[in-house]
């Protein structure tokens, strides 16, 4: 009895196509469960989907319309994001450039650039001290090893220590090699070194934004320019022409000044006696001596 029942149920579940086998049909006609199953499917015979109304027409939403709408929404969203990013970024840049009242740049959290620039670039005098304008930030950036800046002209002095040549005994006029003397020229050890800038100590910044602190650039060592030592000027070349009786016209060319400016000329006679009116300024390169006497020596200049 079980076997035809299961087969009939399988036939039903498979779609009940065509006529069932005779034995199954005989079984189903006397089996209440099979008759109930038949009735369950026969209920569906009264279901008529065509009894529904025709749906009201609607405008079809095509794929193209959806794609266009999606693109429009995406574009609007992208523009909004870009505008927001640009706006926020620009505002932060403005805020960073503005800086706080304490001299600290808000965005970078580091002292204003003027402080770093002042400490990293020595002035013409070679001073390494922060300038007065950067004094407000001196508490946050103080050079720990300031160079010996008490000799402003030191940088302009020659670095080559001249070797003093002892002056010849008995000579009252110093030679060119003896100036300057060793004691009057600062030694090389007293000059600023390249270490001060890297040893700048930047104290913790007050703002929370950890911006990359610009590394202090090494302080360029000022290259001293050798100052030429003045030497004794050359003697002027004198020319003379005879004038009236007891007179002589003298003129001379401006000689090499030895590195220092010529301030004037002195005219002497050969015996060393100064010529009257022979002490003239550098702008004078000619004069007339009217005090000659027959049999006396000719004047000379020095």
């Amino acid at each position: 009895m079980r076997e035809p029942h299961a087969r009939f149920q399988a036939w039903l579940l498979a779609g009940a196509e065509g006529d069932p086998p005779r034995d199954l049909a005989v079984h189903a006609s006397v089996c209440a469960a099979c008759r109930a199953s038949i009735a369950a499917f026969d209920r569906l015979e009264f279901v008529d989907p065509g009894a529904a109304t025709i749906p009201s027409p609607t405008r079809p939403v095509t794929r193209g319309a959806l794609v266009r709408a999606g693109r429009a929404v995406g574009a609007a969203f992208g523009v909004m994001i870009a505008a927001t990013v640009l706006g926020v970024g620009g505002w932060q840049l403005i805020e960073a450039a503005r800086g706080g009242p304490d001299g600290i740049a808000r965005a970078s959290g580091t002292p204003n650039q003027v402080v770093l620039a002042g400490s990293g670039t020595p002035g013409a005098s070679g001073s390494q001290e922060p300038s007065a304008s950067a004094g407000a930030a001196s508490a946050s950036a103080v050079p720990t090893a300031s160079p010996s800046s008490d000799r402003p002209a030191a940088t302009l002095r020659p670095t080559v220590t001249p070797t003093p040549t002892p002056a010849p005994i008995g000579t009252s006029v110093p030679t060119a090699t003896s100036v300057p003397t060793a004691t009057s020229v600062p030694t090389a050890t007293s000059f600023p070194t390249a270490t001060p800038a890297p040893t700048l100590v930047v104290t913790p910044v007050p703002t929370a934004t950890p911006a990359p602190t610009p590394a202090p650039t090494p302080t360029p060592t000022p290259t001293p320019t050798p100052t030429p030592t003045p030497t004794v000027p050359n003697a002027p070349v004198l020319s003379a022409s005879t004038g009236a009786t007891g007179e002589i016209d003298l003129s001379w060319t401006t000689p090499y000044d030895g590195g220092d400016g010529i301030t004037g000329y002195e005219v002497f006679y050969a015996d060393g006696t100064p010529v009257p009116g022979g002490f003239v300024t550098s702008s004078t390169t000619a004069m007339t001596d009217s005090g000659l006497r027959r049999g006396s020596s000719t004047p000379t200049t020095s």
Binding site: R35, A39, F41
Partner: peptide, 10 residues
Amino acid sequence: AGADLEGELG
């Protein structure tokens, strides 16, 4: 209920 309901299959 409705075992007596007979449709096309029945």
